[in-house]
Design a protein around this nucleic acid. Sequence first.
RNA 1: GGUGAGAUGCCUGAGUGGCCGAAAGGAACAGUUUGCUAAACUGUCGUACGGGUAACUGUACCGCGGGUUCGAAUCCCGCUCUCACCGCCA
Length: 423
Amino acid sequence: MLTLQQIRENREDIIARLKKRNFDPTETISQIIEADNRRRQAQVEADTMLAEANGLSKQIGDLFKSGNAAQANELKPKTVSLKESIAQAEELKKQAETDVYALLVTLPNAPHSSVPEGKGAGDNLTVYQHGEIPTLHENAVPHWELTTKYDLIDFELGVKIAGAGFPVYKGKGAKLQRALINYFLDKASTAGYREMQPPIVVNEDSGFGTGQLPDKEGQMYFVGEDKLYLIPTAEVPITNLYRDVILNEKELPIKNTAYTPCFRREAGSYGKDVRGLNRLHQFDKVEIVQIQHPDKSYETLEQMKDYVAGVLKELELPFRILKLCGGDMGFTSALTYDMEVYSTAQKRWLEVSSVSCFETYQSNRLKLRFKDNEGKTRMPHTLNGSALALPRIVASILENNQTENGIRVPMVLVPYCGFEVID
RNA sequence: GGUGAGAUGCCUGAGUGGCCGAAAGGAACAGUUUGCUAAACUGUCGUACGGGUAACUGUACCGCGGGUUCGAAUCCCGCUCUCACCGCCA
């Protein structure tokens, strides 16, 4: 979430930036500042009285020790009455804190100044496009037919053992999955990311740290008996590795990558969006996460964007990169690039990656800080991106590379899966 | 699942009612010095929220939440977590 300091010190700037999300935070921000003023006032009162009470207690102790029990006992009632006033002031302070917090969590991250204006997906800015859209043979079909034709993925079987959106990958389909995961991880390692293998369930504190809780509660699978959430992305465990941590500036940037299955309830999705591999309850993804110095985070975001673009090029897929407009950005992001590959058979763009800079929005929640070279404690910026999510990559490989005689595997994956054609 | 022990600062670890925001050692950082991939010495060395132009200063925090007391790291209650042993098991 945004910090009080940001709001107090750069009020107008924050308001202007938030307006890009097509809502006016002016009122909320006034309320936050009002509540924070109340909090400060209550704290001053409480602290003053506490100081007095502490002083009295000390006096009483000294008196007892020097044998002046009678004098000490005289002072006691004074502290008792003080205690009541203190309790009152602290109650006010607590209430004001609760108010501030309740308001603060309703505010999304403030978009970066370069974020384009816009209401929705139609207003996103295409900043890059690469690759030829292939011409398919006349019997070309969408991936959900190809997966059946070549016996790669069994959606029905998944329904039987779990439910819709939990596919079973079979034979070359399963091998292709494994090849992609290994390829993505190897690429990330080469780019300097440390490979990690985190738990795929997280506790409530972690869900809060990266911003999934409280507002996206219904989107995560929850194991009630143990109060654990199935992760919707590796971003959650990997970023939470650094919850309550104070780093040294010299440690920055921190670069981690992880493959994990991802679980999403996708409540409310329907229609062509959920057909085949387009939207699943469980899918595989390799995530890259960085923690970076605030001065370098946007430079890093560009590098991460270019990194993902490089992977897509190697996979020989036609893709474009969008800079999301204010109206289409995620709640916690300050700037997001989406990568979309073109699915020739479905004649639509499919989102396969999202690369974002969160500035201090996550750090603040995580209590993630670093000591800068002057010894000052500051918050670093967090960034992450998919590199990449598998299902739609698989869908577009199948669809774009289909021929009359089978599906051609991208060159770069051949060493990983051990075959050149799916037939 | 059963039984027992424990939770203190970056780490180890002392502290059982006021002199404790907390000993000591280690690590880390800065400096001094030494002709050798280091040692010795000195200093610094928790976080958060306030007040103050500033120097400085107040408050809270010894797993979490309550309670007792003029006063709690220290006593009491509840919770969570960790460890050990047994049982079960990949």
